[in-house]
Amino acid sequence: MKPHSFEYLRPASIEETVACLARHSEDARIIAGGLSLVAMMNFRLVETKFLVDVANIKALNYIRVDADHIEVGAATTQAQLLAWPELASLSPLLAKGMPFIGHFQTRARGTVGGSIAHSDPSSELPLCLITLGGSVMLRSKAGSREVTAEDFQVGLMQTSRRPDEMVVAVRFPIRKKGAGYSFLEMAMRKGDLAICAVAAEVRDGSIRLGVGGVADKPAVREWKDLGDAALDEALNEFAWDLGGSDDVHATATFRRQLIRRLGRRAILEARECRN
C-alpha cells in the first residue's frame, strides 16, 4: 500500500496556492491534514500529479468572530476549533458534534477546511455547516466568492468548488437567540464515520434537522414547530425522501429508522436546551 508518484508543492501563501491551482487545475490536489486524502492515496484510489500542501500557511489558520458568524480558516485543525474556549457558547452544535469527528489523534491534524472540501456524506462538519446554514469561502486567482453550504456540496464527495479554487474559510453562523441544539450520531465504533448523524436546531416556532450518512450529501429539513404525531410523520417523510442505501455495515431501512428515532431524540433534546 504505497502511493503513486507525484510532485510536491508547498506554496507559502494563499496567493501562491491559487496561482498553483490556476496553472495545474484538475491535476492538483490540496493537502492539509491529509487524513482522508493520504489514506486514499495509499490505497491508490487517488492519483494526482501535484500535491499542494497548505498546512503551513498561517493565513489559513484562524478563528474569527463577526456579528453573526464564526469564521474558521481552512487549515485550522479540528482540535484547535474544538479547544477554542468560545465554542460551546457561540456554537453549541459544533461543540456537541465535533467530538464525534474521528479521534483525538486525527483531530489534531485534520482540518476544518479539509473536511468541508472532502465532503464525505458521513462527515460531521459538513452536516453541522449545512444545518446551521453556513457558507464556504472560496478563492481563485480570479477572486473570492462565498457559497452557501447548501450549494457547496452537490453530491457524493462532490462540490461546486472549481478546480482553480481553494477553500480558504468556513463560516458557521453563531448560535441563534432562543435556540437549542443537539447532535446525535450512530457509528459502528467510537470515531467511525456516521451510519446516521442528526443535527437539530430548535427555536420557538421552528425546527431544523440535518441528517448525514444517509443520502449522498447531508440534507436539511425545516418545519414549523410540530406536535408529537406530526413530528413522527414529518420524520417519516424525511426518512423516505432520503432513502439511503445498504452497505456492509447497515441497511437503508436501518438508516431510515435512525432518522426517525435519533431525529426525534435530537429534536426533543434541542428543545430542552433552548435558552
Binding site: 450512530m186 459502528m188 451510519i195 413522527d232 410523520e233 417519516n236 417523510e237 426518512a239 423516505w240 425522501d241 432520503l242 432513502g243 439511503g244 442505501s245 445498504d246 452497505d247 455495515h249 447497515a250 441497511t251 437503508a252 431501512t253 436501518f254 431510515r256 429508522q257 426517525r260
Partner: peptide, 27 residues
C-alpha cells in the same frame, strides 16, 4: 446495530402517501 434493530423494531413505518422520492435501492 442494524441487525438487532431489524429484529426488534418490527415493520418500518410505511412510506407516506404521495411520497414519490426515488425508491431506495436495497442491496
Amino acid at each position: 446495530p442494524a441487525k438487532v434493530a431489524a429484529l426488534i423494531q418490527g415493520q418500518e413505518p410505511a412510506r407516506p402517501k404521495g411520497n414519490q422520492a426515488t425508491p431506495p435501492m436495497e442491496l
